[in-house]
Amino acid sequence: MSTITKKKSNKLFKFSRALLVIIGGIITAYGLEAVLIPNSVSDGGVTGLSIVGSQFGLPLGLLIAVLNIPFVFLGYKQIGKSFAIYSVIGIASLAVSTSLMHQVPTIIDGDTLLVTVVGGIIIGFGMGLALRNGGALDGIDMLAVLLSRKLPFGTSDLILFLNMFIFIVVSTVFGLQGAILSAIAYYIASKVIHIVEEGLSGSKTFNIITDHPELMVETIRDRLGRGATYKLAQGGYTQEQFKEITCVINRLEESKMKEIIREIDPRAFVAIYDVSEVKGGNFQKKNIH
């Protein structure tokens, strides 16, 4: 593959990711404006706080954009520039879409069970689509990932813990029933995110066999701040010896890792495993800025 062809391919790949993140923001906005908010049901995270603030006359889109600013900066410092850029694209898409869809007709009215299920599925699909392509629509995920490195708790545990306080705030505006319905909708959304994005919490192990192992490890270290290990392996048929790379990352870095592999060696053999928990060793992200 020539250098020019490779650059064009990478640009197309990045553009398609950005487009899918934007679509994820639009889908999430539709779930909020056409299902949840008209039925006094909120979402979790920063979006949930924004919905509460909008009940006092403040523009929802503006609140989503402003309240997410510190979390985007946090994502930039702790996860990387690429993740921060895609998150800005996704959050901007969500903020603009909620403003444009404010008068969209409500597709479900009054049926609380159907509201929570349909609303949770729609926003879960939108958020999962954004996460799958390297961006986040809500800053609570970024905060949970950072805290999980400092505290002896998993990412999903911290997301649940942080949202408990948010739903308490929601109850002051939408009442206890509204807060309970919001929690149910958020739980359903989290399960849909897990399906779409393949892993709401936890880490990923990448096993990589490539013709450029040293360059691959160096690039992973420079761009992700992650270390990697070599394991000497031998092909069962060719008897050829090679270095197999093993690297453990968090779920938000998966898209960036795939981009690195695709850029360095599109023909690399890659096996990806879900990791429910990582402890000890040197699984501490280095500062890449």
Rank of each mutant, 00 (worst) to 15 (best):
I4R: 14
T5W: 03
R17N: 13
A18Y: 13
I22F: 08
I23F: 07
G24P: 04
T28A: 13
E33N: 13
V35Q: 04
G44D: 05
G48H: 05
S54Q: 05
Q55W: 00
G61M: 08
I64T: 07
A65E: 04
N68R: 08
S82D: 12
F83H: 10
I89W: 01
V96K: 01
I108P: 03
D111F: 02
V115C: 08
T116W: 00
V117T: 10
I123F: 15
M127A: 11
G128M: 08
L129C: 12
G135V: 04
A136H: 09
D138T: 06
V145H: 02
V145A: 12
L146M: 14
S148Q: 10
P152S: 09
L162T: 08
V173L: 00
F174T: 09
L181P: 00
I193W: 06
T205A: 15
L215V: 15
E218N: 14
T219D: 08
D222C: 02
D222Y: 07
R223H: 11
R226V: 06
K231V: 12
E244I: 10
T246V: 14
V248N: 09
R262V: 00
R262S: 13
R262C: 00
R267T: 15
I272H: 01
Y273E: 14
V275A: 15
E277Y: 04
G280Y: 11
K286C: 03
